[in-house]
Computed example of a mutant assay.
Amino acid sequence: MSTGPATGIAVVGCGYVADYYRQCFPLHPGLRLVGVWDRDAERLGVYSRYWSDRAYRALDEALSDREVAIVVNLTTPESHAEVTAQAIAAGKHVYSEKPLGMTTAEAERMRDAARAAGVRLSTAPCNVLGESAQTAWAAVRRGDVGRVALAYAELDDGMIHRTDYKSWLSVSGRPWPARNEFETGCTFEHAGYAITVFAAMFGPVRRVTSFSSLLIPDKRTEPPLPHPAPDFSVGCLEFDGGVVARITNSIVAPYDHRMRIIGEDGTLEMKEPWDYASPVRLRKSQQGRLGRMLERRFGAGFAASTLPPLRKIALRRGRGRPTMDFARGVAELAEAVRDGRRCRLDEDFAVHVTEVTEMLQHPERFARPAVVRSTFAPIAPMDWAT
């Protein structure tokens, strides 16, 4: 890990998620926030005053600031590619919120543009760098569950359109962007939290067999949504090493974020991939008759033990505070640039996650099963996890 001068960053997009990033920046002394910008002048003013941050007068001012090495693109998903392209053209490295693009073709254009410009490109989500995911990955490498054959991820969020989401405000007062979330789709919003973890552990995805549907078109918005995205998807992913994973996304089924990694000798389970402190539970396979009977009676959690976390997360807990370090991906990119090494969440990995996600949300665009064209080099665990 390098200890040179802090890397200057600029935030573009001061919406709901920007507050979570802002709360996490102080966890990383290697990052220095230079300024912020949003196309909504009123929102920019509220955000910059709340955090006492410098507000740029225009996007061009942010992109031409020589103190800025990395642009953190937190704009709406449909704006990601446009803003990222402008930042790349200005010679800036970019860390973008997910997705990198709304299509694989968009993501590939961003990757190729970054390489041509000699800059780095990385995207969220960064939960694979978190303590919980790294603890589970270390258990896989140790062989705690034997040879891994199967993985499950449930990313069900319940019927959000029937909740009081209009009262969901970030700490600086920004409402949760319901319309944008419903039109982007829960798969594009959430699948990456599972894909990144499984791909880091098992390598590139080679084939995807998926199904998606819009089950509840009327999300009770006013006015009605012109283009609501599928609110349910399920897909089977076949990885290079032979592991198969099933990923389910919905904003219909009750809240369930379990991730399970199933090996010949046992199962690992994480309850919440959005919580870096989520415990990792290990349950050895029950082979005796009594063990099988107890498992059937008391459920899959029977005889499970909690693995000690590899380290304690530094986040402060409390209402309105994030349970994951949103800035860790930005810090990883900054460190990779300073050290002259490959970023763990580099542009190849970002394109791969985007391609698999598009196959899950829009299977009609691809052959069945869909063959994944993109790939990436093996990802190294965090230094403190080896």
Rank of each mutant, 00 (worst) to 15 (best):
Gly235Phe: 06
Ile261Cys: 07
Arg373Met: 10
Thr163Met: 08
Gly15Ser: 03
Trp384Cys: 00
Met159Glu: 15
Ala124Trp: 11
Ala370Val: 04
Thr221Ala: 11
Pro363Ile: 07
Ser305Pro: 01
Asp53Arg: 11
Thr323Ser: 11
Ala114Met: 12
Glu97Leu: 02
Glu264His: 14
Ala87Trp: 00
Pro308Arg: 14
Ala10Thr: 04
Arg32Glu: 14
Ala136Met: 09
Phe298Gln: 00
Ser79His: 12
Leu74Asp: 10
Phe326Gln: 15
Leu360Pro: 12
Leu315His: 14
Ala89Arg: 15
Asn73Gln: 10
Gly13Thr: 03
Thr104Phe: 07
Tyr152His: 03
Phe232Gly: 04
Arg341Met: 00
Cys186Ala: 07
Gly45Ser: 14
Leu33Thr: 11
Arg54Gln: 11
Asp383Tyr: 04
Ala334Met: 09
Met324Thr: 13
Phe302Gln: 06
Pro378Cys: 03
Gly299Asn: 08
Thr104Tyr: 06
Ile216Pro: 02
Phe349Asp: 03
Arg341Tyr: 04
Ile216Asn: 08
Met270His: 10
Ala303His: 12
Ile262Tyr: 12
Glu82Tyr: 10
Asn73His: 04
Arg57Ile: 11
Leu169Glu: 01
Asp112Glu: 13
Gly101Val: 08
Leu360Lys: 03
Trp176Pro: 01
Ala133Gln: 04
Arg344Ala: 14
Asn249Cys: 13
Asn127Pro: 04
Thr75Asp: 02
Leu345Met: 15
Phe376Asp: 06
Ala385Trp: 10
Ser122Gln: 03
Ala6Asn: 04
Ala139Pro: 01
